[in-house]
Nucleic acid binder design. Structure first.
Lengths: 152, 152
DNA sequence: GTCCATGCAAATGATTTGCAGTATC
DNA sequence: GATACTGCAAATCATTTGCATGGAC
């Protein structure tokens, strides 16, 4: 399975950055579980299983780079942590058709694919002259499970 | 002009909270400039002009309450500060038809009114069983001014 | 008079930074 | 071998909290 590792290595080379094992391990942790939304600390713990000597600062420094490169996406769930998830490997310059649904009961985070927002972005350009290049959309509410439990 | 002050006082009474001058001053700062997105520190500075003895902690404690009551809205622009703006005084239970456009060049924040998202929310309920009760939508890009400047 | 609220200072906790040693190219 | 990277510890900085005093009801 192509996890994008090679592409990542190449990108590092292009940028004059070195491919350290820690750096690759961090990437792999994110790439291995594309549906999770990792805290820096969670990434740290996960990487530590294979690289016990790694420091938390290294994780922070690298997720920052990863995020700059657009390889991972930042996500803020307003719980005091910045979270990260691996980006879609084959988005050229396409928008993220990817929103987050946050359950206010169980705290679960779900994703929803959609492209309705492009319509909205067109509308924004037309009426405001504002050119949208990215967006972040969060929906708060109750997931299927919790909504069902609530109804009784 | 009805700023909602009276309604706020009444709400405080109902909740068994006291109407201290600091508390009202904080509310007024937010209500006076509905289009601004205030940092806690900014609110503090503003209130300080009339109440020089006020403490920053008091501001934090009160905006937290205000936010719980739904009187002001939290807003995270990912710049390391939580921001606040006064909510729409006559939303009963209506959703916010109010999105934020953030210019990546000048840092300006604009608002855009729209109800297209309700369609999306219906779709989310139908396909995922997730019941949306609120949302936060941010668009990043270039404002009219900066887009124009960029083009040359 | 009771109880909530305030102001101050100290605590917290996620993230950043300085620096000396280490590994990659 | 030069330069970027790491790990550690210390620093930052927004926000929270403890506590004694003060004010609203």
């Amino acid at each position: 399975m192509d996890t994008g590792l090679e592409r990542y290595k190449q990108l590092l080379r292009e940028k004059g950055m070195k491919t350290t094992p820690q750096r690759l391990a961090i990437f792999e942790v994110l790439a291995d579980e594309p549906d999770r939304h990792f805290t820096a600390e969670e990434i740290y713990d996960k990487v530590k299983q294979r690289w016990p000597e790694i420091g938390l600062a290294t994780v922070y420094r690298n997720i920052q780079k990863l995020s700059e490169f657009g390889i991972i996406d930042k996500l803020n769930l307003d719980d005091g942590f910045v979270r990260y998830e691996i980006g879609d490997p084959d988005r050229d310059k396409a928008k993220h058709h990817h929103h987050h649904l946050i359950c206010q009961k169980c705290g679960g985070v779900f994703t929803f694919e959609d492209d309705l927002l492009e319509l909205l972005e067109d509308r924004i350009r037309e009426t405001m002259g504002f050119i949208v290049s990215d967006h972040e959309v969060k929906f708060y509410g109750y997931c299927r499970e919790c909504a069902r439990a609530q109804k009784r």
